[in-house]
Design a protein around this nucleic acid. Structure first.
Lengths: 225, 225
DNA sequence: GCGTGTGAAACAGTTCACAGCA
DNA sequence: TGCTGTGAACTGTTTCACACGC
């Protein structure tokens, strides 16, 4: 039926990690990598690396390995980051302003093109001292999204406002939402949501540390992402 | 051998989501939930909810469901968030300062107890205008960690500094690290690491939106977390 | 009747191990 | 020889379906 059907979700998650590691290898002037090298850097078996990449094509040279530069290009293409995505940010609080200032997005092909906030006190002025983007009212969402052909959004508002914001984003035509609010969102099937609740991740850490302590540490790998 | 061995990692991840949803239910004065209600709110099957909870104990009443308040307490206890964890933050850049100001952590039982940064220009003054915490040099890590009995750390420094920071955290006795830097960390087995690279998550979104577009949307659920 | 807890069945993902190619 | 790509075996996770208790 379609392009990347039948690819396990964990394999797609790892693809981002391969890309990041490949870029790190490139920065040290490494031109070729084996699945073994890539795996060791990420604490993954070499078989896993090969199988993951093979879901998307045949990128390697038997006896040699993978060409770093070429594989970077292929993976970017698969992930869809071989172009720049414009993103709308909703929420100009602490978290929102930090995301706005964070340079890591630009490097990876994401550009925050507009900022929205429901609070009138924040509207029609720069989102922060070092930003040249004015904060808009949510009413302007549909026109901004349409005019700049925007498909992705980041929600950084309080939990109780998150669903209402999501509804407006969907109505405006957004197709992918990164949700930093601590709330589950309900959206139509054709809209993708990635939940990224910082507190949830700290809880996982708390659990792992507690579980390790409870057993005196004869433990295996707890690494993730 | 130990306390929560044999529990699937995905079940632990969902536990945090159950907790968050239960707290939302409590805030609407709901006193009892069924696995079906909890599942529908999170887009998970009822069987999954029951099985996940059953890994940790028998919390429900046949014919009735789960007592919201009681289950919240049990889950907090399992996750280890029925107490407050002191956390050290390394990195007083944009991201670090946002985390410092973010109120969501406090509510969930995490308190940023100290801030560190390798840049001398940032040291010995408040991390930000609205913070009463001074930024310390990394040299002070061991004493701070020991004196305040700290087990968790958040890394919010540039990628190329992340591993060196991790090494110092481990040496200081930290047992769990939330790594926001875009780099893979290598740590001893008894230290837990959760990687939380914002760009990686946007890439996943980009992939999902691209994959959905490539197939014209006869698609199934792409929701996560 | 309603809803939990749980074995058994089905499905998904990972690891193994090796054929084949440079 | 070194390393990829891949079927087959294995391991882990989810779903099913039902016995039991309220």
């Amino acid at each position: 039926m379609a392009k990347f059907d039948g690819v396990p979700a964990p394999a797609v998650r790892r693809l981002s990690l391969y890309l990041r590691q490949l870029e790190a290898f490139r920065d040290t002037n490494l031109h070729t990598v084996s699945s073994k090298q890539l795996g060791e850097a990420l604490r993954i078996t070499d078989a896993q690396v090969r199988k993951d990449l093979a879901y998307f094509g045949q990128f390697g040279q038997a006896g040699i390995g993978y060409d770093v530069e070429e594989l970077i290009a292929k993976v970017r293409n698969i992930l869809g980051t071989d172009r720049t995505w414009n993103v709308v940010l909703v929420g100009a609080g602490n978290l929102g302003r930090a995301l706005l200032a964070y340079r890591g997005f630009r490097k990876k092909g994401f550009r925050i093109a507009a900022v929205f906030d429901g609070d009138p006190a924040k509207q029609n002025r720069p989102a922060s001292a070092d930003s040249d983007l004015d904060v808009h009212a949510l009413e302007d969402l549909p026109t901004t999204v349409a005019e700049q052909d925007i498909h992705l959004a980041v929600i950084a508002v309080p939990a109780q406002e998150a669903q209402a914001v999501a509804d407006r984003l969907v109505a405006a035509g957004i197709k992918g939402i990164m949700n930093m609010a601590p709330a589950a969102l309900h959206v139509p099937q054709d809209v993708a949501v990635i939940g990224l609740d910082l507190a949830v991740h700290l809880e996982q850490l708390s659990f792992q540390v507690g579980a390790a302590a409870a057993r005196g540490n004869n433990n295996h790998d707890m690494q993730s992402l």
